[in-house]
Design a protein around this nucleic acid. Structure first.
Lengths: 164, 164
DNA sequence: CTGATTGCAAATGCTTTGCACGCCA
DNA sequence: TGGCGTGCAAAGCATTTGCAATCAG
């Protein structure tokens, strides 16, 4: 799975007369080893926690290349930093729900929504290209039972949820 | 119309034991005199082109206050800087379509979309709070007739359309 | 070989903040 | 009068860029 993405990236690199390097390979592998969203800084940390090595600048530059290649997408989760989503190859038209209580991000696809958005776009006189839905919602569990497992997990992991 | 918003802001200011100042008044008036989206920097320029005076810091600080007061909303139009939308008081649940050709932003509301999003949110086990749809689309006119009036207007006005 | 790539540090650009002075209540 | 508010410049931060050394093809 990851290998095929690496191959696609290398094909892109060749097509553009760029060069394959160990840093680029490491970065691409690191990104697609998980299905998690990440910021540039988080990716830089993740890479440094393994044997691989790549400078901050190279991480930023490779992310840009991946976005240009269409293998990675920048998404808006409401955080200050740019966030990237490696899951658009599997789910080309998914959307995001962010829990305001625990910060958990849920990905979802919905054909009805896609169709409706397409209709709206055409009715406005435009040609649909891309659409994304950002839902902010609260834990139903937290409201009903007074607690939410993700909230707990989030606190324990010390993950910060920055709000704009 | 703008006056009533100013009144609401001043009520908010009083409720929080803050103070009414000429700078805050000017900034609020300037924002709600138009229905245009803006960045902090654009607002700062706009204010300085009139008789009013307010420092950059005060502009930023007042924008934050307005967002806290629920009178202004931060939106994501894909630009690098934070963009603000003064139209949520009139249209509490509108969305944005951005034309990739000319950068024009079209606001639209749709009850079907809102309902569908609510259903999706509940089906995922969450309590709906807020949802926003971001549509990127192309000028149908440009494709069919080879030109788009907004594209021309945009170029003449020298407005820059930054892409992320 | 030759030009692309990397790493470093410096530069950017938007936004926030510390501080002294001024002004609203 | 007591603070809150303002303006200025400095600080912060994520991201980008210039440049010399290095490396891929």
């Amino acid at each position: 799975m990851e290998e095929s993405i690496l191959e696609r990236f290398n094909a892109f690199v060749k097509r553009r007369s760029l060069r394959r390097t160990s840093q680029r390979d490491s970065i691409v592998r690191s990104i697609f080893a998980k299905d998690e969203h990440f910021t540039a800084e988080e990716l830089f940390d993740r890479i440094h926690r393994t044997d691989s090595r790549a400078s901050r600048a190279t991480v930023y530059r490779t992310i840009s290349l991946l976005v240009e290649a269409g293998l990675l997408r920048e998404i808006d989760l409401g955080s200050e930093e740019k966030t990237y989503d490696p899951n658009f190859l599997d789910k080309p038209s998914h959307n995001h729900l962010v829990c305001v209580d625990c910060g958990k991000v849920v990905e979802f696809e919905d054909a009805h929504i896609d169709l409706l958005n397409d209709c709206i776009t055409r009715r406005l006189g435009y040609r649909p290209i891309r659409q994304s839905i950002h839902i902010e919602a609260g834990c139903e569990q937290l409201r009903l039972k007074g607690m939410c497992p993700n909230l707990l997990a989030t606190r324990l992991s010390g993950k910060r949820i920055k709000k704009r």
